[in-house]
């Protein structure tokens, strides 16, 4: 279980003087869904290409399923399904033909090919459109077909590059649910890259934040917020009906509480920073003391704040790193 199925060591890629990926170390374990989160041009696609041996790293190694991706890309590609960010199909062929072509290239036996392709089209919900030419497919359908395309080779790992790009919100929810379900049912390892933090938040077990070629942080979302905002991650703001006097008699009493690390008073608003979640106890205490509580707000740090915190310093540079084709 604790054997990394994707192992990147000191991976770097330079384009001239620009460092697209800079000394990247990353382990992804079997069966987990890992989200590579970063703005456009952060080097996500380059990293993925290096994992598949589609581009050579300037230095460092990428091991996927125990094979070195640079030296033996064929062995890696047998085990890994990759869906590029702008997935394209042969427009003059139907979805089924497209799928069967990829199946043949992967050496699937001819006699079970069609049944398998139809089965996979059913999993991704395209049975009704399987005999339509892919030129008539919508973006969301193409994305689903792209997933089918990845699944037909029976992979151990699937890598999805910006899988949610350009699909409507319902489509995104369904698509991500499908990925999660597939990963859980078949024990697939999934690596998906996105700049959409909400999508990543929905499905990923672990997240790596990737900016300007560097992995700034990785871990599950609570670990990340912990790292970012200190161990005392719980902030509760309570608004009272009446203003709080300058020398508040309850202040020393509250500061005795073990869980409270910080207390700020701003007119009629109290902000507690606590090591554990004691919102309910605080409210009860204030009510017992005769204060009228009119508002309680519990601040949970989500990816939004994490994202903001990491990316705000990079927002100016992003424009110059924007991919030429999106």
């Amino acid at each position: 279980m604790k054997d990394p199925i994707i192992q990147l060591k000191g991976l770097s890629k330079n384009y001239g003087s620009v460092k697209a990926v800079d000394d990247l170390n990353l382990d992804v374990y079997k069966g987990e869904i890992f989200g590579l989160l970063g703005p456009n041009g952060a080097g996500k696609t380059t990293t993925i290409l290096m994992m598949l041996g589609l581009t050579d790293p300037s230095s460092g190694t990428a091991h996927v399923c125990g094979h070195n991706a640079t030296n033996s890309p064929i062995a890696v590609k047998k085990k890994v399904g990759y869906m590029p960010d702008s997935v394209g199909f042969y427009d003059n062929m139907t979805a089924l033909e497209n799928l069967m072509y990829i199946g043949r290239l992967n050496g699937l036996p001819e006699n079970e090919l069609e049944a398998r392709a139809l089965n996979i089209l059913e999993i991704v919900g395209l049975t009704a459109d399987s005999h339509k030419k892919t030129s008539a497919y919508s973006r969301g359908m193409k994305q689903r077909l792209g997933l089918a395309d990845v699944l037909i080779k029976n992979p151990d790992v699937i890598i999805l590059d910006e899988p949610t790009l350009g699909i409507d919100p319902t489509g995104v929810r369904d698509f991500l649910a499908l990925i999660k379900q597939l990963s859980r049912q078949q024990g697939l390892t999934v690596l998906l890259s996105s700049h959409h933090l909400h999508h990543v938040q929905q499905v990923c077990d672990r997240v790596g934040i990737f900016v300007n070629g560097k992995l700034l942080a990785q871990g599950d979302i609570s670990t990340l917020s912990g790292k970012l905002f200190g161990t005392d991650g719980h902030v509760t703001a309570i608004t009272l009906d009446q203003a709080i006097p300058q020398a508040w008699p309850l202040e020393p009493e509250l500061k005795q509480w073990e869980a409270i690390t910080q207390l700020t008073i701003n007119q009629n608003e109290l902000e507690f920073t606590c090591s554990s979640n004691i919102t309910a106890a605080l409210v009860r205490f204030l009510v017992e003391k005769g204060y009228d509580v009119i508002g309680v707000h519990q601040k949970n740090y989500g990816l939004d704040d994490i994202y903001q915190k990491y990316f705000e310093s990079n927002s100016i540079e992003n424009t110059s790193y924007e991919k030429s084709i999106e």
Partner: peptide
């Protein structure tokens, strides 16, 4: 340009 090359190159072919 149609995006099929990347897809093709991700298959185990030389």
């Amino acid at each position: 340009n149609s995006g099929t090359l990347t897809r093709l190159m991700a298959q185990p072919i030389y």
